[in-house]
Design a protein around this nucleic acid. Structure first.
Lengths: 309, 309
DNA sequence: CATATTGATAGTCTATACCTATCATTATAC
DNA sequence: GTATAATGATAGGTATAGACTATCAATATG
């Protein structure tokens, strides 16, 4: 049995005429006749009662045509679905981003993405690097925005930008009087960190060359908080912290008793990239996303020029 | 696109493995691979994201598989429907019978038909000859049980039996004393008739060689009645009537003030037959029906032996 | 480094769906 | 009563879609 055959059936059922049905199906009348005959033989029933003057559906035929209609209906819907998604820049794109980036990046790009690619329906989610990587593997998301390299896990990546870290310290802090903040300054302050699931924490530890993290232990009981909460802690005089540049511009820091300071430490940055599965079929959509991100970003980050292979 | 291709899609979607899917579809792996590739090219979308270790559905793929499932579901339902009807002795059989026969014949055969052909679902209707003939033409019924020949209208027929007419007269009637009733006797009695849409009326007129029908005119206002009512009229002394044999045995005539008399008139009978369209595809069902009717009938009718060509 | 697993590719063969031409039957016209 | 038209079925030939086997390429695994 064949979808084509079912279309022939429907054509005959509707026109009640083999010749006209054949015309409607763009085949010759003998072709249509023989195909229907063969189908009837295969099914073991007579679908049409033919005479030289008329063609009529048998009761079985009625039931069969009913199924045939629904079948071709679904087939057409399938083609329609494909057509809608044909454009790689259309359809759902599931984007996961790390929590230290997501709240500042997503609002930035959202409007531009909608305008530039109205057919693209982004679905955002917030999770730490490890979780995003496994969701990527499981095909639960299409792309992750990470700040750590991912090549070694069998993924590919599009580098986007380098995001410098800024120091957040209370207004009444010894460093307030210093003009430039260097690496040595960082070693002396008490550094508040998120839980170490966050790549940000590990990166800060590395940059500041901390041996252990004495202050972090105090915060261990309060795992489920984000950057903004951390900054609140800073404002109460607990210590300092490093935050990525976008958090400085995107976050609400005014009148909160803290100050954000640029660092004179060249290596104090993180590289943000789109990470995806090597075989992901809609690379174009990812390139479009990368383009939008780069176009929308402020100059507090160093954009990496895209190579359009 | 093809139903086979959709089955391939579903197999891969379910097993997430081209080789196993191919096995399940009883084809080689390259066959399945190339068919799916071709389909993807036709649809212009990637349905599966393949890597050397895994096969996963893309979001478009999910949507497409959904339609594919429903499509093949309907196709299978179609085949199932055909299978149910495959037996010509299964499924609906729409039987129309004339009103002067139906109430006596249908109850007679009903049980035997159910027992002999439990898959056959008879649907009975009662109408006069002309109406049955047009419903037969319109494919609204499958077979008509008539008492008039129908070859000239392009139909075919299976002769069933010859049903003699019996005379019904009131108990206090001159003929009560006669042992045998002959044709001459019939000319002298006042004959009550149904409306002339009924073939029975025309046949009685012919047998009795009546010129006009004086008594019928009086009953003209009461068109919509049947044989039983007519017999009630006879019992009130209005006149006599002829009824077919089955009505005598099947009808409730005891204690009704009338008597049923056999006739010594050889040509006083009607031939009952199954009438059907020449191309009707389930001749077997009709032959089965004919067989049941002949097996169940009492010997008051002359059965016509069936020729099983 | 060798082996196994998995999907893709190449080349060949066959079944089948298609076409044109023609027939058989029957209704309609003259 | 014959001729014509309409309709579906049949016959025979061809081109293509879909199947197969053999092989490759890439990548895990021991």
């Amino acid at each position: 049995m064949n979808l084509r055959d079912l279309k022939y059936l429907i054509a005959v059922a509707e026109s009640k005429h083999f010749g006209k049905a054949a015309e409607r199906c763009f085949v010759s009348q003998p072709t249509l006749s023989s195909q229907i005959k063969k189908l009837e033989e295969q099914l073991g029933v007579t679908i049409f009662e033919r005479s030289n003057r008329s063609v009529e559906l048998t009761p079985v035929g009625e039931a069969i045509i009913d199924h045939a209609r629904r079948c071709t209906e679904q087939a057409e819907a399938l083609v329609q679905t494909a057509k809608i998604y044909q454009d790689p820049l259309a359809g759902q794109l599931r984007i996961g981003a790390i929590p230290t980036l997501s709240p500042y990046l997503i609002p930035l790009i959202f409007q531009a993405l909608k305008q530039g690619y109205p057919q693209l329906h982004p679905v955002f989610s917030d999770e730490v690097t490890g979780a995003l990587e496994s969701r990527l593997s499981n095909h639960e998301i299409d792309v992750a925005v990470l700040a750590t390299p991912a090549r070694d896990k069998g993924f590919e990546e599009i580098p986007l930008f380098d995001e410098p870290f800024w120091l957040i310290h209370p207004l009444q802090h010894p460093l307030y009087t210093k003009d430039e903040i260097t690496r040595e300054d960082l070693r002396d302050v008490e550094m508040l960190l998120l839980s170490d699931e966050h790549c940000l924490s590990r990166q800060i530890v590395e940059i500041c060359q901390l041996d252990t993290k004495p202050k972090q232990r105090e915060l261990d009981e309060l795992r489920a908080f984000g950057l903004e909460t951390l900054i609140q802690f800073v404002s109460t005089g607990f210590g300092c912290t490093l935050v990525p540049a976008l958090a400085v511009h995107g976050g609400r820091m005014t009148g909160s008793g803290v100050i954000a300071r640029k660092l004179e430490v060249p290596e104090a940055f993180r590289r943000v990239r789109l990470v995806y599965r090597p075989n992901f079929p809609r690379l174009q959509a990812l390139q479009a996303l990368a383009g939008i991100i780069l176009k929308t970003l402020p100059n507090t980050v160093r954009k990496i020029p895209q190579q359009s292979a």
